[in-house]
Design a protein around this nucleic acid. Structure first.
Length: 256
DNA sequence: GCGACAG
DNA sequence: ATCTTGTCGC
């Protein structure tokens, strides 16, 4: 009768994820996705949030739009926001999505011609406890194609970071090589991708919305100058720089 | 108690 | 997410 507040919150969030999950489209829906070189794709977006050390409330929400295939920054939006939801593994979207959506809406209102045709999200999509990670959440709520790219492996649904996984990583020879992340159910939830020849540590790609897994993996590889896809890397770099210049040493603030 | 735990 | 410099390697 009196369950802990956080437990109630989690239950509420789980049902919300179950409801929204039915709206995920895990196949290609755009013309540019069919071609071998994504002809027709001109703009790719990237989103990220950066925090001030020791402050888990105030963050800089970042949206960038890059040209494709040049990967030059066409648009940048940095906005300080105050997060309300706590971070709970499996529910990252409830903490970050509202502010990423706001950034996309600002762009649609001010320069709709620059709206990205696909958005790279730092985090997972279908590769998730309940197959509805941040990339799916943002995709469904925005209606835009989204790709989830996580830098670390989430051990879910029977996918483990064991010796077998390590050997599969070792077998990735060149940038573009990948192997599937298969759930105990047999469903492929995502792929581990060697994003460049240089980086031996893979990134984990999964479908967010309106794109199929193999297209998502090919696209991710084509957007990588370094290990992390350029849209996400730029969003990360620029949001961190924003915090550096607007909140210099916010940690060692003079106190009496 | 121990290990996991996207960002 | 953030705490944190240099360092080993190509």
């Amino acid at each position: 009768m009196f369950s802990p507040p956080e437990e109630d919150l989690v239950h509420q969030w789980e049902s919300e994820q179950d409801r929204l999950r039915q709206q995920v489209v895990d196949v290609d829906t755009e013309d540019w996705q069919s071609g071998p070189h994504f002809s027709g794709l001109d703009r790719v977006g990237g989103v990220d949030l950066s925090f001030i050390k020791g402050d888990d409330v105030n963050a800089c929400a970042q949206l960038v739009v890059l040209s494709y295939p040049e990967l030059q920054v066409l648009y940048e939006d940095s906005q300080m926001v105050a997060l309300t939801a706590p971070y709970i593994a499996g529910f990252l979207a409830f903490r970050e999505t509202p502010f990423l959506l706001e950034a996309l809406q600002r762009l649609q209102k001010n320069q709709p011609e620059l709206l990205p045709q696909v958005v790279f999200v730092d985090g997972n999509g279908l590769f998730h406890y309940r197959e509805f990670g941040l990339a799916c959440h943002l995709g469904v709520l925005s209606g835009l194609p989204c790709v989830g790219v996580a830098k670390n492996l989430l051990q879910v649904q029977g996918v483990y970071k064991n010796e077998e996984h390590q050997s599969q990583i070792a077998a990735l020879q060149r940038g573009g090589d990948s192997f599937p992340l298969t759930a105990a159910s047999g469903k492929v939830l995502g792929k581990a991708l060697r994003s460049s020849d240089k980086s031996s540590k893979p990134v984990y790609v999964s479908v967010g919305h309106k794109i199929n897994l193999d297209t998502a993996v090919r696209l991710t590889h084509s957007c990588c100058r370094y290990r992390v896809p350029e849209p996400i890397r730029q969003a990360d770099c620029r949001s961190r720089e924003y915090l550096r210049t607007h909140f210099p040493a916010a940690d060692t603030e003079t106190k009496e």
